[in-house]
Design a protein around this nucleic acid. Structure first.
Lengths: 215, 215
DNA sequence: TGAACATGTGAAGCCCCATTAGAATCCGTC
DNA sequence: GACGGATTCTAATGGGGCTTCACATGTTCA
């Protein structure tokens, strides 16, 4: 179940430090490692020694970059969602102006899936551990999750208003069912069983048919 | 996120011991408690002291019933899946003889959802922690999961053969997308947002439309 | 009643792991 | 080519949690 690590985007926010110094790169290496271990072992199962090993340094070095284990985890979880939201926002911005509500939903499906399956670790860490966080970390995560959900809610609201969503589906429930459809892919997808393109195509076809009124 | 505990069915297999003795009931109390804690805290986060508290006894007492923490967890995870499989098997057996392939899939959707949302803790524990188990526990779990997946695979195979599954969907991918649709409900459903009946109705409508060829 | 067996307890052992302390090493700059 | 900050290491500290052990309490049945 070991996954790829790469974290190309990783909203490099930090606190005003330059981004290309050796220091910054080490910080990212630690975050990547943490995402990988967190995704595989879960909140309580992630050990700093494991993270250190993946990041190729000694555990105490982590404290040079993060005040505590929980702070590191909080950052990973937050980046996972924030990155995803940024991705989706951008994707919707560049969508053709004449795209209908359903087409915008399908764009969101593709964006979410590609991000989830390609960038991966951060997102799967965020998804899998959302329910297991202690209260102190949960707050920032929940806030970010709400923002991401709001993007989707707007898409469904629009579809309901333009009649592109079947009447016998509750918009809220439909949204949750779609998010389940795509979130779950991270649990079963493996590169050797089907290409990402195939998964995206099938998921889009599936969602469009599930939501659209009979023509 | 605390959930209900109840474990009505709990395939009471054990090793030939009588089922109604005080002892057996205590054993079930411990299993129920473990399922609840496991579901909430994850594999590594589940503490025997938490389980003991929920089960209303002292932690060492658990060792009278289970050889180790891992054995207890293994049993919870296994029961979660085995119970579900039994449920689904029975539901398909009593299905009307003239039910089509699609109807049988919708029966499976309903059965899975009701079991997941009503019986809950065992299933959510099994679902959430499947990826975080150490190898020694994983084996029995994977084997059972494969059996459950086989039931679904047959349903989709049948639908593909009778033409009740759209041609542009890969049967395997379609199965995974449907299972995502329903598995994910455990992550967001709350009794106060929608009744189980509504969720079931929406999910069935969603899945049928997603899979069926345009009429 | 009392003897065997079934259940449950409290205290202690021991390993693992986050975290801290203090020193070593690297690296650019004067 | 050595000073100073940045970065990383090794070696301890301390608490938490699974597990064991020896004993208490309860229960069943002759």
């Amino acid at each position: 179940m070991a996954k790829k690590s790469g974290s190309p985007t990783v909203a490099a926010e930090s606190e005003g430090k330059p981004l290309d110094k050796k220091s910054a790169r080490t910080r990212v290496r630690i975050l990547d490692a943490a995402a990988q271990v967190l995704s595989a072992k879960g909140y309580a199962g992630m050990r700093l020694s494991d993270v250190a090993e993946v990041a190729e340094l000694q555990a105490p070095a982590i404290y040079y970059y993060f005040p505590s284990r929980d702070d590191l985890i909080e950052e990973v979880m937050w980046v996972g969602l924030a990155d995803m939201r940024e991705f989706l926002t951008k994707a919707l911005e560049v969508a053709p102006a004449d795209a209908g509500a359903m087409e915008r939903i399908l764009i969101a499906v593709e964006t979410h899936l590609r991000h989830e399956l390609e960038i991966s670790d951060y997102t799967t860490a965020a998804i899998r551990n959302a329910g297991q966080l202690p209260d102190n970390i949960r707050d920032r995560h929940d806030a970010e999750e709400k923002k991401y959900g709001a993007l989707w809610r707007d898409l469904f609201k629009a579809a309901a208003e333009t009649g592109e969503l079947r009447e016998d589906l509750d918009p809220y429930l439909a949204q949750m069912l779609v998010m389940g459809t795509i979130n779950w892919t991270a649990e079963w997808w493996q590169p050797n069983r089907a290409t990402i393109d195939r998964v995206v195509a099938n998921a889009q076809s599936y969602v469009r048919a599930a939501l659209s009124p009979a023509s």
